[in-house]
Nucleic acid binder design. Structure first.
Length: 413
DNA sequence: TCTGGGGTCCTAGGACCC
DNA sequence: TCTGGGGTCCTAGGACCC
């Protein structure tokens, strides 16, 4: 029995929880819960888009698919070349949101210091006297038992190391990567495995004869700064296990930007069609801004042409707005600026950034626009769409057009 | 290899001001 | 009119993440 004067030593740990093959596992668990007798995880299966809509890439794959060499972002054409009978399931974000939220709820039972990093990843900070590996196993099994899918958990003293650890052998595993384990567990790995070291950076480092994370950890910092600027310092610190960032708290869900983009089912060559796509994207973005109670003061559009070259234009506003019509006006001006006759565009995107929570107008002589009137109109349209569906009301310009009047999911959080 | 959609952060260069 | 240096703001584009 513990004596009154005994000292209990609480230690702080960071756990990184990563759902294994999230979209696929969640779909599998969802189908089993609905009474399906096949578990997608035991098949050669993938989650992938619709090729006819030119959305045909792999978003997630089963372990069996992975073993055959099927990789995320591969085209479905390539996948079928590897395994013609592959089971392809269309993505359904409503399932993913549900499972993601359920996972967070379980994690909250263990710690309130929690940062959602993406739909399928989360950091938690835990103070415990318990063995952290045992505790991580407990959490892992809790999720498996209650929700029917597996996770990997990385345990360490900072976020970077915890994240690297959760990426070791999968699925359904707990790994530690404490500072004294870096040399043994991380330094032998290729530099491209390091968080934030993408292909471009890895290529640069390889040219400098830096091949492993260990090489990077011992590299000359000045050389890294010269070739990679501030990213050089970040990668150098990561390779040495240094990461001073803290758990940001749950409200990371406060977006810095809200955008939508779409690959059109056929290339767009006609500017009239291009305008309609932009308007349709603006409808969703503006509606989402209003749902969040947010106002934007920076708008940008991005086009991707048939050669996959990106073109972008953006504009800072003297006001913060969430008016659909005003946002459309500015976005169409931006389209005017980038559009050249003869263009062939496959993908369109619009984005609203520099978000705030108040409407403001810095110089009201600049705009001939009745914001108050538009705000009540937007409110009215939002309410109609909320009650009767998003497609019940649309702009006249879409009448007889093959472009959908609203593109982008406004229910996503 | 006929290649999605949603984000964040950084940087180079130009415009403009003093 | 030309020359210049420093600072700030804005924009286009790139790199990275899941």
């Amino acid at each position: 029995m513990q004596g009154y004067l005994d000292i209990i030593i609480m230690k702080d740990f960071i756990f990184h929880i990563d759902a294994n093959n999230a979209f696929l596992s969640w779909t599998a668990a969802h189908r089993l819960a609905l009474g399906s007798d096949t578990d997608l995880r035991n098949e050669v299966s993938i989650i992938g888009g619709d090729e006819d809509k030119r959305h045909g890439i792999v978003l997630a794959k089963s372990q069996r698919a992975k073993a055959l060499g099927i990789k995320t972002a591969m085209t479905l054409v390539q996948v079928r070349q590897i395994y013609p009978d592959v089971l392809i399931v269309s993505p359904d974000f409503s399932i993913y949101t549900k499972y993601s939220d359920a996972m967070i709820e379980i994690l909250k039972q263990y710690s309130q210091r929690l940062e959602k990093f993406s739909i399928d990843e989360c950091f938690i900070q835990i103070s415990t006297e318990e063995d952290p590996i045992e505790l991580a196993n407990k959490i892992k099994n809790h999720i498996k038992k209650d929700l029917g899918f597996t996770v990997n958990i990385g345990v360490s003293s900072n976020k970077l190391l915890a994240k690297m650890a959760s990426d070791f052998k999968k699925p359904d595993m707990v790994h530690s990567l404490f500072p004294d384990e870096i040399e043994e567990k991380m330094w032998h790995m290729p530099v491209s495995e390091l968080f934030m070291c993408g292909k471009k950076s890895a290529d640069k480092l390889n040219k400098l004869c830096i091949f492993t994370i260990g090489d990077l950890a011992h590299a000359d910092l000045d050389l890294l700064l010269y070739h990679l600027n501030s990213l050089g310092l970040t990668l150098y610190e990561y390779a040495n296990g240094i990461d001073k960032s803290v758990i940001s708290g749950e409200k990371k869900s406060e977006f810095k930007s809200i955008g939508h983009s779409t690959t059109t089912h056929i290339d767009i060559k006609d500017k009239k069609d291009a305008k309609l796509v932009i308007i349709a994207l603006c409808e969703s973005v503006a509606m989402r801004l209003r749902k969040q109670g947010a106002f934007t003061s920076h708008l940008s559009i991005e086009l991707v042409n048939s050669d996959f070259k990106r073109l972008s234009h953006s504009k800072k506003l003297d006001l913060a707005t969430n008016s659909t019509t005003f946002i459309c006006q500015i976005m169409l001006e931006l389209l005017d600026e980038v559009w050249k006759d003869g263009m062939v565009i496959r993908k369109f995107g619009v984005s609203a950034s520099k978000l705030s929570h108040n409407f403001y107008l810095q110089n009201n002589t600049l705009y001939d626009f009745d914001f108050r009137k538009q705000a009540s109109l937007d409110l009215c349209i939002d309410a109609i769409r909320e009650n009767f569906g998003e497609h019940i009301i649309f702009r006249l310009c879409f009448l007889g057009s093959h472009i959908a009047p609203m593109i982008g999911n406004t229910t996503k959080h």
